[in-house]
Structure formats: structure tokens, C-alpha cells
Computed example of a mutant assay.
Amino acid sequence: MDIYEILKYLPHRYPFILVDRVVSYEPGKQIVAIKNVSINEPYFVGHFPHYPVMPGVLIIEALAQAAALLTLKTENAAKNDAQVYYFVGIDGVRFKKPVAAGDQLVLKVNITRQIKGVWKYAARAEVDDQLVTEAELMCTARNI
């Protein structure tokens, strides 16, 4: 999926779209996506001016956006303006290494369970084949 297809599925827009490309996906199973981390990211102005590091919460958000894409592709549903995907839980978060300007964040998300509209995922982010962040995510769709 390129950015144009991603924008058909996710409601996020600049500066909060955190998935640039989907490399592969298998509906109902897994997705691999990319976030190119540029020095032009707005958060680098204050985090941190002397050593630009991507905030951990935004790495988790990038993983969640990849998870949402996987769920939407699994359900074969383009963006529905009447629904928003929300976090319902985040467990076991570990930050192993900082993510800096110039890094390419590889987002790997697997569906581990889906019950009554709640999806659970095993998620990991890597840079240069090294784990930088891992977490278990739970999300659900709600009408707005």
C-alpha cells in the first residue's frame, strides 16, 4: 500500500499520519509497514533540540496505525467517517533503543486475538533489524 491507499483507510492527516508505506500484509494475520523518520518532523523542535529522538508514545501510535490498517484490510473496509479506532489497552511496552532522525522504523504487527469487536495485537518496531520497541496493543472501533 502506498500513502494514497493508506489515506483511504486512516482518518489521520499531517502531522499525525505515522505510516508512510505498507510493505506487506496478510489479512487476519500480520502487516509490515514503514515510517521514515525525517529531521523535519514537528516534534523534533522540542524533543530534543540537541539530540532529536522520536517520542516513545509516537512509536506506539505508529504501531497502532499499522494495526488499524491491518484490521481494516482484514475486514475489507475503507475509512468510515462515522467510526474511530481507539486504544483499549497497551501492555508490556518496552523501549529498547532510541529512534533518531534519519532512521527507518519498520512496524511489524500480528493479530493475536479478536473477540467481540476488540482486537489484540503483538507489535514491534525495528530499525536496521534491531528491536527498538515492543508492546501488546488492544483496539476497538466505535461510532462517533
Results as ranks from 00 to 15, higher is better:
K8S: 10
E5W: 06
G102S: 09
Y86G: 04
D128H: 09
I59S: 05
V57I: 14
V106F: 09
A66V: 08
I34C: 08
M1L: 15
D103Q: 05
D2I: 10
N80V: 02
I31W: 12
S38P: 00
R13N: 03
H12C: 02
E126W: 12
V132K: 07
Y121E: 01
Q65A: 12
P27V: 06
R124L: 10
L10N: 01
E136W: 02
A64M: 08
L63Q: 05
G102E: 06
Q104P: 00
H47V: 09
E126T: 10
P42D: 04
I17C: 11
A64V: 07
L131N: 01
A100I: 13
A62C: 09
V19N: 03
F95S: 03
E134T: 14
Y4T: 04
D103P: 00
R113N: 13
I111H: 05
I17A: 08
T71W: 06
D103L: 13
F87H: 02
N36W: 06
A67I: 07
E26L: 15
K79E: 03
F87Y: 12
T140F: 14
V106A: 05
A68P: 00
E5K: 11
V57M: 14
I144N: 13
D91C: 06
T112P: 00
V45P: 00
K79V: 02
V84I: 14
F48P: 01
V22C: 10
Y85C: 08
D81S: 09
V109F: 14
P55H: 04
K79A: 10
G117Q: 01
Y51V: 09
A125V: 07
C139M: 15
P11A: 08
D20S: 03
M1R: 02
I115V: 15
A77S: 11
P42N: 01
V53H: 06
R113G: 05
I39C: 06
M1Q: 06
V32K: 14
P42F: 15
Q114P: 00
T112Q: 12
A33S: 11
V106L: 14
Y121L: 08
K120F: 13
A78V: 13
A62M: 11
R13P: 00
F44L: 13
F16V: 05
D2C: 10
R94L: 14
N40L: 14
E26R: 12
F87T: 00
I3Y: 11
G46T: 04
D128M: 10
V118C: 07
K79Q: 06
I6R: 05
A101G: 14
F48Y: 15
G92M: 07
Y4C: 02
I90R: 05
A67K: 02
L137I: 11
Y4F: 13
A67F: 13
V57E: 06
L58W: 09
F48M: 11
K35M: 12
I6W: 12
V37Q: 04
K35G: 07
E75S: 07
I17Y: 08
L107C: 11
P55F: 12
V45N: 09
H47R: 06
Q30L: 11
T133Y: 11
L72T: 00
P11E: 02
H12N: 03
V57G: 05
V32P: 00
L10K: 03
I90N: 04
F48W: 13
E41D: 04
D91V: 04
I39S: 09
N40G: 06
V22I: 15
E61C: 13
L70D: 02
A82V: 07
I3R: 04
L10W: 07
R124T: 06
Q114Y: 11
